[in-house]
């Protein structure tokens, strides 16, 4: 772990702010790709920003029986995702903030944001809210162990649970083929889809009570609160993708921010990887149909199983 210098902290802070600001772009790109794949012209890359700006200009309507918790949660959501962004290595691996939370704590962080979202959903006392909370937690309780298993596999390979160390190990060491990582990768992809309310587990655009998961939890939010939530959702997607990139496609990561050549390579590499991953996700979403809500546990159980298989393969074959 690098020494905590002021430069490192400043660089990291800047990078985090950049990530927070740029996150909706990934969502926009993904939606745009999806539109193209569906032969639509699409709303444009900046549509998420427009949406957020629009929401910021509206008056907020809050249910009369909402508690302070309800109003606090959007900030907590955004803050937790921003913190996650500070921990995940996107451009370089010597992150001074990484000591705050390793990969296990990162899972805990995601769990925290989910839990608060679910609590907020239950706060108003509408049927949809608690339904959404229930489904959100249902997805969570299977996705979280699967994610943890994925991290376990990589941690065993890298002998560390610290995400930057893992990424560092993969990026700056001679290339070795790890079959276990393949399992982990697939599992991670499935978790990513589920956690970010993407098809086939959830449909981010639907408001049909039979199927919605994430949308049901935020149904009561409006205006700036909703904007924060949407923003943090976009950031969450960004974070997940970056985790995936750090774990499975770590090449091109610089070692430290003060290394200009490394950065020169890392920035375009990141942009490229994000673009490819985004379009890949769009492709998956286009090719698949939304599944029934009670198939979701099966889907996630499969992810969990795959992650476990990865771990077992790692332990049995040592690869």
């Amino acid at each position: 772990m690098g020494t905590v210098t002021l430069t490192a902290v400043l660089a990291q802070g800047t990078a985090t702010v950049m990530a927070v600001l740029a996150a909706p772009l990934l969502l926009g790109w993904l939606n745009q790709c999806r539109a193209w794949l569906q032969n639509r012209s699409g709303p444009g890359l900046l549509q998420p920003y427009r949406q957020i700006r629009k929401l910021f200009h509206k008056d907020a309507v809050i249910a009369s029986n909402a508690s302070p918790l309800f109003r606090l949660v959007p900030y907590v959501e955004l803050a937790s995702m921003a913190l996650a962004a500070a921990i995940i290595p996107t451009l370089w691996t010597r992150l001074p903030f990484a000591i705050a939370a390793d990969s296990i704590a990162l899972v805990g962080l995601f769990a925290m944001s989910r839990l608060f979202l679910a609590l907020a959903a239950m706060d108003i006392g509408t049927a949809f809210g608690s339904l959404g909370a229930r489904r959100e937690m249902l997805v969570g309780f299977l996705a979280e162990p699967a994610l943890l298993m994925v991290f376990f596999t990589t941690s065993l390979i890298a002998h560390s649970t610290s995400l930057p160390t893992i990424a560092d190990g993969f990026a700056h060491q001679p290339f070795v083929l790890y079959p276990s990582l393949a399992f982990a990768c697939v599992a991670f992809l499935m978790v990513l889809l589920a956690e970010n309310a993407r098809i086939p587990v959830d449909n981010p655009t639907t408001h049909l009570e039979l199927t919605m998961i994430h949308e049901a939890t935020v149904l009561e939010y409006s205006a700036r609160h909703l904007a924060l939530i949407e923003w943090s959702a976009a950031l969450k997607l960004f974070n997940y993708v970056c985790i995936g990139l750090a774990l499975f496609l770590p090449w091109g990561l610089a070692e430290r921010p003060t290394d200009p050549t490394g950065l020169l390579l890392a920035v375009p590499a990141l942009l490229l990887k994000l673009a490819v991953t985004g379009s890949g996700l769009a492709l998956i979403e286009t090719l698949n149909a939304k599944m029934r809500i009670f198939r979701a546990p099966e889907f996630l159980a499969t992810a969990f199983l795959l992650a476990m298989l990865g771990l077992l393969v790692r332990l049995l074959l040592g690869s």
């Binding site: 772990m1 803050a79 913190l83 705050a100 939370a101 296990i104 560390s160 610290s162």
Partner: peptide, 15 residues
């Protein structure tokens, strides 16, 4: 710290 680190104070402060 390379192996595993967790700093709840920093975590809480961050949040």
């Amino acid at each position: 710290p390379e192996r595993a680190a967790y700093s709840p104070a920093l975590f809480l402060f961050g949040i």
